[in-house]
């Protein structure tokens, strides 16, 4: 159930980034979040690069939730 909850959360957060509901997030989508989140464009690009696995320019829901999972893992570890 932890994993289901995590996936649900990942999907909701993914939707916040994928405003046009394309099904993926581009670097441009990420850069646009700069107006809503307290992060710089450079930081958002760094987030995109660290979440993206295959360097195809798209961040998929799977890659996104894997990143969130890793983050939650780090949080629990601390």
């Amino acid at each position: 159930t932890m994993q289901v909850e995590m996936l649900e959360k990942a999907r909701e957060l993914f939707r916040l980034c994928d405003k046009e509901e394309k099904g993926f997030i581009t670097k441009l989508d990420m850069q646009r979040l700069q107006s809503e989140l307290p992060l710089t464009t450079e930081q958002l690009e760094a987030v995109f690069d660290s979440l993206e696995q295959d360097n195809n320019g798209y961040l998929t829901p799977v890659e996104f939730s894997m990143g969130l999972g890793k983050f939650i893992g780090i949080e629990q570890y601390q």
Binding site: C17, Q43, V47, F71
Partner: peptide, 29 residues
């Protein structure tokens, strides 16, 4: 080594990103 520096900061940036998104989500109705 710039690549090492990037690795060290990325966790913090990632945490900042997800925390911001999470608080944004909970903040909206």
């Amino acid at each position: 080594d710039p690549s090492m520096k990037a690795g060290a900061t990325s966790e913090g940036v990632l945490a900042n990103f997800f925390n911001s998104l999470l608080s944004k989500k909970t903040g909206s109705p």
